[in-house]
Amino acid sequence: MSYASINDPAGRPLGFNRTILPYTGNNEPNPCITIQNTGGRRIEIMAQSITGSSNICIDSQDGNKVCSASLYKCEQANGDSATYEFYCVGESCEADDVQMFFRFTVSPPSSEIDPELWCSDRDTSQYPLSLSPPLPPDRTIPPIRTTKTSSAETSHGIHLLSMVATFMLAMFMSFRYNK
C-alpha cells in the first residue's frame, strides 16, 4: 500500500475527488457531475473548499441549492440519473479559482436498507481537512512497520487467549446457575 500527502493532486483523501471552481470573471463553465443508476436511492453529497473558507454551492435538478465551506446534502434521487452543478459565491471566488474536494455516495437499493434512515446513519464529520495536521508539500507518511513473531510466540498467545476465554465462560455459567 502506498501513502500520499493530502496535498497530492492525484490523491483521494477519504474517497474525495478534487476539482476547480473557476474564477467568476473567466466565464468558464462550472463543474457538473451526473450520477447514473440512482433510481429509488439516496445520494449523499459532501464538498469542501481546500482553503476551508470559500463558500461552495451545489444546485441539483430539483432546484434546491445548498452553500457552505463544508457542504453536506443528502436527498432522494428523482430518477435514474441526477446532475449536480458546483459553483462558488463570495469574495474569495471573485479573486481567483477555488480548489475543492467533493464526494458522492449512493445508497444501496431500498430493498437492502431503510431509505428513510440511510442519510441519518452517515458520518458527516469526515472531510479531507479533518485529517489533521495536513502534511507539508511533497511529504508522505511511511508505511507502518510490523515485526514478525515466531510461531512459538503466536501459539503461546493463542493458548493464553483460549485459557482466558474458557475461564470467562466458566464464570458466566457459574453465575447463571447460581441465580
Rank of each mutant, 00 (worst) to 15 (best):
S5R: 00
I6H: 01
N7I: 05
D8V: 00
P9T: 08
L14F: 08
G15Y: 07
G15K: 03
F16W: 07
N17A: 10
I20W: 01
E28W: 08
P29S: 15
T38P: 05
G39A: 14
M46T: 06
A47R: 08
Q48V: 04
S49F: 01
T51S: 12
G52T: 02
G52P: 00
N55Y: 10
C57E: 01
I58N: 03
I58E: 11
G63W: 04
K65W: 02
V66T: 13
C67Y: 00
S70Y: 03
S70F: 04
Y72I: 08
K73R: 15
C74A: 04
E75Y: 15
A77G: 02
G79N: 11
G79I: 10
A82S: 14
T83L: 07
C88I: 02
V89F: 00
V89Q: 02
C93G: 07
C93A: 03
Q99G: 10
F101L: 03
F101C: 04
F104W: 10
P109N: 11
S110E: 13
I113E: 08
R122F: 08
D123F: 06
Q126A: 12
P128H: 05
P128C: 06
L131C: 03
I144P: 11
T149R: 14
S150D: 14
S151H: 11
S155F: 14
H159Q: 13
L160P: 00
L160A: 15
L161D: 14
L161G: 12
V164W: 11
A165V: 06
A165R: 08
A165K: 08
M171G: 02
M171C: 13
F172E: 08
M173W: 09
S174L: 13
F175G: 09
F175M: 12
R176Y: 09
